[in-house]
Design a protein around this nucleic acid. Structure first.
Lengths: 339, 339
DNA sequence: TATTGGCACTCAGGTAGTAAGAGTGCTAAA
DNA sequence: TTTAGCACTCTTACTACCTGAGTGCCAATA
């Protein structure tokens, strides 16, 4: 396979290129690193790396730049990631302290992550998938509407307005609420559909139509747990690193604006090395992200992963620092949710 | 003052510049418009406009470009705005049809507006300020927490989790809920604070601490009606028109990412001509937006303005079309909320 | 007084040509 | 396997030059 020193050379190239943004040549390499061999030898190694498509020359007489494949190998051989500086750990503590509300916690988290990494950060809202129902509330909200609130045991609250078409009978709504809670409290979302049926059957005909509307809506809302949500922060960081996106940043902006794209993307990503998952450049199935890298990690509640968070940036990013930042923030969020 | 023909020339310059993005010179001006005078005359007019700082020459031997002040005069003298094309009106109809839920309606609206204008669109959530309480709900959500839901008569729903510190006494929560609704239903938010006091006083001491927490939270939530919210769409449109932002788009991205900035901005803007409000370039108090124009219009429910929507784009934008688009979308949204 | 044609002047942008520098690939020797 | 040497390539920067668009001004005109 590829000899050790060549891999060292690759690592040096990636590091220098990330630091300088200039294609790196054999001479500057021997200057800045102590390989103990001459530039000519490095050149031979570089020729090898180029054969393997790990690096690439923008033009004949220029230095080399890592390819997606090169970054990939670099990251895979990264046996330890740069630990966070104390200042960064402090920042995390300060940022995360004292927020009870889920919305606020996630909002803080995403801003924190974007500040730590100087990239676009994203946090996915907890999935309802594995959760169960804690409570269902029906609230008359207008003449002909009721508000359906669904609270799950992972703290997520979904609400939806149901249009009944007829005036709300408050007594009946209260009755239905009691029945629903009796039947569904503690039931996993996946089993809600079957438990709903007997309720619908046991109602007086005069209210059947209204009940059906509400129950359908409830089912929909349970099903629509795929209507997941992602919040973003630090979009401006993209523009600041525009030179790193050949062409334009606008495909990237489009991609991250489309929640569907992002959700699909991160749903495909499973934790690999270092507890994070990484897609570099064209490894992203989505065309618009072919110059971007996506880095995600799961976060947990009650011992099981409930959603993901991560960053998006140019392929030329500091993988080592970003991996530790993402990992650390995921850990802190897990901890914060534990309370 | 400035003679009529000179104003015509200004209008022509703005139009041509918006269309071509090239500084426009006297010769091309007489070619493309029929002024009935020669290029030399136009040049005299242009000299006048330049004295008035309505146009500006990027360099000595170039054509002219409108200044912020020039755009401003152009817009102020715009006696009628370009009506929407049929296709656009159709698009609005199609887009807006059939959405009961406030979140969804606003989400659709903002995307629609961004597509119509090819700019960044924003929609502010209805303000609680002028609303009154329709219903308050308290829902036990976990061992020591209750969910406080506040429904206002403009259809907005706010929720917040209250940490009690002690186990929830369901009976007491139900009692408190009943009391709150009896005392507060129909009360304008501005008067909630004073009406809360007697409730707190009339409770048994053993529950006073819990009640106080909940009532404080309710007050906070009412007060925090300034914790307003804006949703955005079409951020990628900024990147597509990057050439129109000298320097970089990143200050603009930063500005629109900061909800606080946006909220402050639009709160300062009151409807002027054509039912919309416009800030051109440096008219924006916020530094980062000095190359951008902000265009907003209010939308209504039950006859009074409840919030605003609008677009943000480069100063070199098609004001006429965008004004009609913003106005039309605001009208349709008002209509949609009427149902 | 307003308009016009004429004309000299300015300046950005394009085209060449040149020089410098960085970096490579190859070869032959250690 | 490593190294020094060297010819070669290609980008970048610099210079000079030209062209064309566009202006500003002036004197003549309606």
């Amino acid at each position: 396979m590829i000899p050790d020193r060549s891999l060292e050379v690759l690592r040096a190239i990636v590091q220098d290129y990330i630091a300088s943004k200039e294609p790196v040549g054999s001479k500057s390499l021997v200057e800045r690193h102590s390989f103990g061999v001459s530039a000519a030898t490095i050149r031979n190694d570089m020729a090898l790396l180029e054969d393997e498509e790990l690096i690439h020359a923008p033009h004949t007489s220029a230095g080399r730049v890592p390819t997606d494949k090169g970054y990939r190998l670099f990251v895979d051989r990264l046996d330890e990631v740069k630990p966070l500086a104390k200042a960064e750990r402090d920042a995390i503590e300060t940022f995360m302290v004292g927020s009870a509300d889920l919305d606020e916690t996630l909002g803080r988290t995403v801003r924190l992550l974007s500040q730590l990494t100087n990239q676009v950060a994203m946090v996915q809202y907890p999935t309802l998938g594995k959760a169960s129902i804690r409570h269902i509330e029906l609230i008359p909200a207008a003449d002909t509407r009721v508000l359906l609130v669904l609270i799950t045991d992972n703290g997520r609250i979904q609400q939806h307005v149901v249009e009944l078409g007829v005036a709300v009978d408050e007594g009946f709504v209260a009755e239905l609420r009691a029945k629903l809670n009796a039947a569904l409290a503690g039931v996993p979302l996946s089993e809600v559909a079957e438990k709903i049926k007997p309720i619908a059957a046991g109602l007086r005909a005069e209210n059947a139509k209204v009940a059906k509307l509400i129950l359908n809506n409830l089912s929909e809302q349970v099903d629509a747990n795929r209507q997941e949500k992602i919040i973003l922060a630090g979009t401006a960081n993209l523009a600041k690193r525009e030179e790193d996106f050949p062409g334009s940043i606008s495909p990237v902006l489009e991609a991250i604006e489309e929640q569907v794209v992002l959700l699909k993307l991160i749903s495909e990503m499973q934790a690999e090395q270092h507890g994070v998952s990484l897609r570099i450049g064209r490894e992203n199935s989505f065309e618009g992200l072919s110059n971007a890298s996506v880095l995600v990690s799961g976060y947990e509640n009650q011992g099981s992963e409930i959603a993901k968070l991560g960053v998006i940036g140019p392929t030329r990013m500091d993988y080592s620092s970003n991996i530790s930042a993402v990992r650390a923030v995921a850990r802190y969020l897990t901890k914060a949710l534990g309370n």
